[in-house]
């Protein structure tokens, strides 16, 4: 097979490269080095700058395929899939990594069908198999209770989406240099059926919880919606985001974009506070790859303590105000 090179699909939003683009480069660099092949970052948009393309190189790419066109301003899956499928046919990459974001998890399955190849969702580990050079893709399944390793032995490219925050972003190395290839959009690839009519931003403190380094989440133990105030205060000390269990969302204490878990969002922050959350298997599936987990719950037998790095068993209405008080003291030091 004459497929060569590792590709990462970069993402930009509101004129900024998303952090996850750099995480993919850190994954991709490791794979490209093992294969002794080129690492290419593909990025589509309408206003990606030369500096941003340079940044992708400084963070690990050998080459950047840059395609700017007003028609690609919005992510429309049919257009993006056509364009990427066309590039795959032209360049024949061996591996393509995208982020397991709403974009990656939409465009990758769509184009995996068109290119007749395999795709593994939401990977938390990637490696190269010694003897065959195949990509080994490891992902949690069944609510995170198993880790399955999957490969695509006979089809190319091998494709995976990668869980955001599951690795560190590649750092800038000012000495790196590479090639920036400016691509022209072949207008015949535009699908033209779907129209974007508008966009409504989340409420102020619903900052994208999947991007947050710190999340303070509340559950049924909070007893009423107003008590999320102390969770917000706790998150505030870390410039973090607020999260919630399904129980809290189902009781209308907080809206759905905050929900962490199988029927909500999967998050991997550096620090996760689970307050008044018992740790149902569905909730754990959404947060248990967090780096540090702190649990506060009055029930010693709650499953959340099993995954916690630090837990306090007791009345959260006493513990959280005390925690907020001591954090305030730390801040003022």
């Amino acid at each position: 097979m004459d497929y060569k090179g590792v590709w990462t699909l970069g993402e930009a939003r509101n004129g900024e490269l998303k952090e996850v683009s750099f995480e993919l480069l850190s994954r991709g660099r490791k794979l490209a080095d093992k294969l002794d092949e080129e690492l290419v970052s593909l990025i589509l948009g309408d206003e990606i700058t030369e500096e941003q393309a340079e940044e992708l190189i400084k963070r690990g790419a050998d080459k950047v395929l840059l395609l700017n066109d007003p028609a690609l301003k919005d992510f429309i899956v049919e257009n993006y899939s056509n364009v990427i499928t066309d590039l795959i046919e032209k360049y024949k990459p061996e591996i393509i990594l995208a982020a397991a974001t709403t974009m990656g998890r939409t465009v990758m399955p769509y184009l995996a069908i068109k290119t007749k190849t395999g795709l593994t969702a939401d990977c938390t580990d990637l490696d190269i198999e010694e003897d065959t050079g195949n990509l080994l893709q490891t992902r949690p399944a069944i609510g995170g209770n198993i880790l399955a390793t999957i490969k695509t032995p006979n089809h190319r490219p091998q494709m995976a989406t990668v869980r955001p925050h599951s690795t560190k972003a590649a750092q800038k190395d000012e000495s790196r240099s590479g090639e920036i290839v400016h691509l022209e959009l072949d207008k015949s690839l535009l699908d033209g059926r779907v129209k974007k009519l508008g966009f409504r931003k989340n409420e102020e403190d619903a900052i994208n919880i999947q991007d947050a380094d710190v999340i303070a989440a509340g559950g049924k133990g909070l007893k009423k919606g107003e008590n999320f105030a102390m969770i917000r205060e706790l998150a505030g000390f870390f410039d973090g985001a607020v999260g919630a269990s399904r129980d809290a969302v189902d009781r209308d204490w907080i809206s759905y974009p905050y929900q962490v878990g199988l029927s909500g969002k999967t998050v991997t922050p550096k620090l996760y506070f689970a307050v008044g959350i018992s740790g149902a298997i569905q909730h754990l599936a959404g947060m248990k790859t967090s780096e540090n987990i702190i649990a506060v719950n009055e029930d010693l037998g709650a499953d959340i303590f099993k995954v916690a790095d630090f837990g306090i068993v007791g009345d959260l209405f006493e513990i959280i105000p005390e925690l907020n008080k001591q954090l305030a003291e730390e801040v003022s030091k």
């Binding site: 007749k116 190849t117 395999g118 795709l119 593994t120 080994l136 490891t138 949690p140 995170g144 209770n145 198993i146 880790l147 399955a148 390793t149 999957i150 490969k151 695509t152 032995p153 006979n154 089809h155 754990l284 248990k288 987990i293 010693l300 303590f305 099993k306 995954v307 916690a308 790095d309 630090f310 837990g311 306090i312 068993v313």
Partner: peptide, 19 residues
């Protein structure tokens, strides 16, 4: 196109400090 080549059961329990 894909093949599952291994299934692991990750340890759930972190054995953290609980007070």
């Amino acid at each position: 196109p894909t093949r599952v080549v291994n299934i692991d059961h990750p340890k759930v329990t972190r054995g953290g400090t609980v007070i």
